[in-house]
Amino acid sequence: MFTRSHLVNSLYIGIFSGILLGLLMKFIQSVTNVKVYTLLLNVDFIPIFGKVQWPETVEFLFHVLISIVITFVFITLAERLHIQDSLPKLWVLSFLLCLPTFGLYFILSTLAIKEVPVWNDWQAFGYWSIAHLFYVWLLAMLYKKKRSTSLR
């Protein structure tokens, strides 16, 4: 059953972790000129969405909304599996949930219309993977931290 705290935690952790992932990708792009941040926010290949020239802030908001959904699923599974107090199990769950994001690099880079890294740019894939591993780590850590502070 979903409680108010479940929803609040999903929003808090999803927004915070999504923003940090986005900022990390933006930093990586600004330092390396490898367009991983552009790829992260890109929606130009999605029917209807792709026809609109969205400002960066709106594209970033789309990214954060996806992070909130991932976090909601993460918290739901953590509670249903009764692993809320085991950080190693939370990391495994977070990794399994985020595993598709690694393969998504290849799909997004292939479908993109605007200039993004090509599907076989291994440097870009490395940056993408490192940033998403940070997200995997962060999701579990923030959930564990939020849970330990709310139990006091």
Rank of each mutant, 00 (worst) to 15 (best):
L41Y: 00
G14I: 10
L7Q: 05
L133S: 12
T76C: 13
M25R: 00
L111F: 08
V116I: 09
I46S: 13
I68M: 13
N9E: 14
L77F: 11
F45K: 06
V69S: 10
I75Y: 10
T57C: 11
Y135V: 06
L96F: 04
L11N: 04
F134D: 00
I28P: 04
L21P: 00
M25G: 01
S86T: 02
L96H: 02
D44Y: 11
C98W: 11
G50W: 14
T57D: 14
V69W: 15
G18L: 04
T76P: 05
I15R: 05
Q53N: 15
S30H: 05
L61P: 07
S10P: 01
W54S: 08
L87I: 07
K35T: 08
V69N: 05
L99Y: 07
L108A: 14
F106M: 11
V118H: 15
L24Q: 02
K26L: 02
Q53V: 10
W122E: 00
V118M: 10
S10T: 12
G103H: 06
F49D: 11
M25W: 09
W91V: 14
I83Q: 05
L11W: 10
V69E: 11
T32S: 06
F125L: 08
H82V: 14
S10Y: 03
F106R: 12
C98K: 14
Y37L: 10
D44G: 13
K89G: 05
I48G: 15
G18C: 05
L61H: 05
H82E: 15
G14L: 09
P117G: 00
L39P: 08
Y127L: 12
Y105K: 13
F49Y: 15
V8Q: 08
A112Y: 06
T38R: 14
F134K: 05
I66S: 11
Y135F: 08
L133D: 03
T71H: 06
F102M: 03
F106S: 11
I107G: 07
L65C: 15
L61W: 10
I28M: 04
D44M: 06
P88H: 09
V31P: 00
F49L: 15
Y105I: 12
L41F: 04
V73K: 10
V52E: 13
V31S: 03
Q53H: 13
F16Q: 13
T71K: 05
W54L: 08
R80Y: 06
A112W: 02
N33K: 03
T101F: 10
G126H: 00
F74S: 09
V58R: 07
P55N: 03
V58G: 09
P117I: 02
G22T: 01
Y127Q: 01
S30M: 07
I68G: 12
I107K: 04
V31I: 11
L7P: 03
A131K: 06
F95R: 00
L39D: 01
L41V: 11
